[in-house]
């Protein structure tokens, strides 16, 4: 596949390399579905990294909340998944991908209060149906794709020089 970049024709590989060269830092974390004991660890690791590289306090708060909600959704609704942190010079991207039940109606799932959490999960304090809306509130751009029976992908973009409050 060919892509146009400026006046040059480049192959997809080359394009990817250009894109990747902008990535200052990346790390992948595994998330285990159903593991409520270690749930939340990846999002803690992620914000510790961001603190060490001097990301702004308010941005860390937004990422902390978005990452935690996304991680919990994998724990609750999927078998396993990954959370991929990518730091660019101008933004932070969290890619969360899972293999799980998928979301049938994304628009509905995005509604505050909508939840299919089980009774047990609700007893543990989850299932308010506020996770996805919270992610959306804290992200600058959020993309969700999902295939029922296969899995779900979230791309959470947070700009490094934006204020969203």
């Amino acid at each position: 596949m060919l892509m146009v970049l400026g006046h040059h024709l480049r192959t997809k590989n080359e394009w990817d390399r250009v894109m990747r060269s902008e990535i200052l830092f990346q790390q992948k974390f595994k998330i285990h579905g159903g593991d409520f004991v270690n749930a939340g660890e990846s999002s803690i690791k992620i914000r510790n990294i961001l603190k060490e590289i001097g990301i702004d306090t308010d941005i860390i708060r937004r990422i902390a909340i978005a990452a935690y909600e996304a991680e919990m959704n994998v724990v609750m609704f999927a078998q396993h998944g990954t959370m991929h942190l990518l730091v660019y010079s101008n933004k932070i991207l969290l890619k969360v991908a899972d293999e799980g039940q998928g979301i049938e109606n994304i628009e509905l799932a995005m509604q505050p209060g909508f939840s299919t959490a089980t009774e047990e999960m609700r007893e543990m304090g989850f299932g308010a149906g506020m996770g996805l809306p919270n992610i959306k509130k804290n992200a600058d751009v959020l993309n969700i794709t999902s295939t029922v029976g296969k899995g779900t992908r979230l791309e959470i973009n947070i700009n490094l020089n934006s204020k969203n409050d």
Binding site: F25, I53, T57
Partner: peptide
């Protein structure tokens, strides 16, 4: 807020140091 100093004031340098 008085966060602990990052590994470096410059973000690119901080990332280098992290790695």
């Amino acid at each position: 807020p008085k966060p602990f100093a990052p590994l470096d004031k410059n973000r690119a340098e901080a990332i280098k140091k992290l790695k």
